[in-house]
């Protein structure tokens, strides 16, 4: 069972309280962008075995979106953080690097 702490409520919510919303930190390409950019935005998703950044929604709680850094292989959770960020905060990056010094980094 995956348990994530909602950064808005401070509640340790298990995954049945939450809704997964796919990859985090996507940059939107809308009208006026090239076809390649638009295709990438719509369809291209990372599917790593290991460290991954995801968007979650505390669906049956406060209803807010938040981000989570977790490991898709071990289900280890490195931390959760607010949705109002364009890339993972330093504390999260440090937590991942402490566990996986060889991790190539976000991006």
């Amino acid at each position: 069972m995956l348990i994530l702490e909602c950064p808005y409520c401070g509640v340790m919510a298990d995954e049945t309280d939450l809704h997964g919303d796919g990859e985090a930190h996507l940059k939107r390409f809308g009208p006026g962008s090239s076809d390649d950019d638009f295709e990438g935005y719509l369809f291209m998703r990372k599917n790593p075995k290991g460290v991954h950044f995801e968007r979650w929604r505390h669906a049956s709680g406060c209803g807010k979106f938040f981000h989570a850094a977790r490991n898709t292989m071990t289900l280890e959770v490195y931390g959760t953080y607010l949705a109002q960020t364009l890339e993972p905060p330093k504390a999260i990056i440090d937590a991942v690097k402490a566990k996986h010094p060889e991790w190539e980094g976000y991006k």
Binding site: C9, V11, A13, D14, D17, A59, S60, G61
Partner: peptide
């Protein structure tokens, strides 16, 4: 409910689900 109800003391409010409903 999936919430830790035993840790809920009077004065705390928990928003979660019961079976299939919020």
């Amino acid at each position: 409910s999936p919430a830790d109800v035993n840790a809920l003391s009077p004065g705390q409010l928990r928003r979660t689900r019961i079976a299939q409903i919020p």
